[in-house]
Computed example of a mutant assay.
Amino acid sequence: MPHTWPETAPTEVELTAGDAVLVVDLRGGALRRLAVGDWEVLDGYPAGTVLPGWRGAVLLPWPNRIRDGRWSWDGEDLQLEVQSPAEPHAIHGLLSWQPWSVLDRADRSVTVATTVEPHPGYPFRLAAAVDHALTADRLTCTVRVRNTGDRPAPFGAGMHPYLSVGATVDGGIGDAELTLPGRTELVLDGGMPTGERRPFAGAVGRIGERALDTPLTDLDRDADGWARVRLAGAAGELELALDDAWPWLQVYSGDTLPAGQWRRSLAVEPMTCPPNAFADGVDLVVLEPGEQWTGTWSLAWAPGA
């Protein structure tokens, strides 16, 4: 019998609509690239590389961090793998490095999917899919999760796009203008909640030297039920909108990223729950066997003059 080996080349799927190009990485299902003409709308990463700063990642079965990876469910103490000795927390779920497959493909849409298999510290089984639809001026992403196990399954979901509006040097995001819909900030210390919440003024204006790594909730929503983030810079204006399945939003200005990535773009992360939600029990989604959850967000662009 001849020796065979698994495919090792990076695999991805590409959509186009007008001048817009979307690339979805099938290692982790991440949004690797979104460009409109010469404008790199998402601050992505090269094919076949480890996504720096979790750029474009799908965050399941939890977004953000769980302190020391420890939590309890249904009377059972659970221990997740942690990031590192320097950051001893479980971070951004279990899916960023595993293969995803294409379930459906059309000219301007694609559905990619994978399975959350039971892991140490997460003894549940979920099916996950993301539907991407691209037009010349908008990307719409719908995240779907289904409990395929035989017991109720708690989870949280998020996505991690870095929005770029034309900064080309470190610190350049400071020139951008920002408006956020959040009215309440969850106060963090070392990335973990302190238990304090305080009012947040969403009309940020020019970002300047302001450092943001901020979970927001109590989102202001328009008459259609969607909350909207607006970011404008030299390249144009972006509007990220999220439906009511996402009660949380985290904004991160890249202050802990290395040179060459530092404060060049703004991560705007739709989330179903805040940091440490597994341990604190805040806003977890719990699915019965066979039950499913759906949440949609979109990103629209208007190039500058």
Rank of each mutant, 00 (worst) to 15 (best):
M1H: 08
T4L: 11
E7G: 11
T8F: 10
E14F: 00
E14A: 14
T16K: 06
L22N: 00
R27I: 10
G28P: 08
L31E: 15
L34D: 00
A35K: 01
G37A: 03
W39T: 00
E40K: 06
L42S: 02
D43V: 05
Y45I: 00
Y45V: 01
G53D: 04
G56I: 11
A57V: 14
V58K: 08
R70C: 11
S72V: 09
D74S: 10
G75S: 13
G75D: 10
E76H: 12
Q79A: 15
S84W: 06
A90W: 03
L95M: 13
S96C: 06
P99D: 05
S101E: 13
D104W: 06
D104M: 04
R105V: 10
A106W: 04
V110I: 11
T111C: 10
V116L: 10
H119P: 01
P120W: 09
Y122D: 02
Y122Q: 05
F124E: 03
L126Q: 10
L126D: 03
A128V: 15
H132A: 13
H132M: 07
T135F: 01
D137I: 05
L139C: 05
R144K: 14
T148E: 15
T148W: 01
D150N: 07
G156W: 01
G158E: 02
P161Y: 07
S164A: 15
G166D: 00
T168V: 15
D170L: 02
G171F: 01
G174S: 09
G174T: 10
G174A: 09
E177S: 11
L178D: 13
T179C: 07
L188T: 06
G195T: 12
R197H: 11
A201I: 06
G202E: 10
G208S: 09
A211T: 15
L212I: 08
P215Y: 07
D220V: 14
W226I: 03
V229H: 14
G233V: 05
A241G: 12
D244V: 07
A245L: 02
W246L: 11
Y252H: 14
L257D: 09
G260L: 09
R263C: 03
R264G: 02
T272L: 09
F278M: 14
L284N: 06
V286G: 05
W297A: 13
S298T: 15
L299M: 10
A302I: 06
